[in-house]
Amino acid sequence: MAAYRADDDYDYLFKLVLIGDSGVGKSNLLSRFAKNEFNLESKSTIGVEFATRSIRVDDKIVKAQIWDTAGQERYRAITSAYYRGAVGALLVYDTSRHVTFENVERWLKELRDHTDQNIVIMLVGNKADLRHLRAVPTEEAKAYAEKENTYFMETSALEALNVETAFTEVLTQIYHVVSRKALDAGNDPSALPKGQTINVGSKDDVSAVKKTTCCSA
């Protein structure tokens, strides 16, 4: 695990990955969350990119380092190299293209093959603003998320709908996992040194708290 420097002000640093088929809006979700920007003329992601943003959870500052990956299937081998050390994942599909939802299964497998089993996963149905083009019913996705024991939310990066909530939810859940882990280990999470990287998915187990919630539009 790479050791991260503690030069800026945060209590926890969590690595998240954004995955899903090409063109589902991963990069715009990220730019909406990290910079509150949405770009209609955004370019396709080649390889990986990342951005960071800090949020407050309880009384702690949690810094999210979010890795945005290319969606095309043939680059999965390359992008999965960046999954290492991720404690959370947003698995994105496009509500207007059913096939991107069908591929969620593959992405889940990919995640489970390359990350720790306790990773916090949220299934995200993006482009919820394209109401007239909807191809994936909310109920279908919700049921799937329940079955797979992941969180679920529908978002629109364009309308800034639920984007903040989705990321915050994932980060909060990771935080809770970490806190519980620390409590289980018998020490107070606040006692952890500042800036220390928390690795949820280390060899020792973390009892993941996973309840399916739905905050869809």
Binding site: K35, N36, E37, F38, N39, L40, E41, E159, A160, L161
Partner: peptide, 12 residues
């Protein structure tokens, strides 16, 4: 000429 980025655009 790039479109200005839609900074801080949301309903709220």
């Amino acid at each position: 000429l790039n479109q200005p980025s839609y900074s801080s655009f949301n309903h709220d």
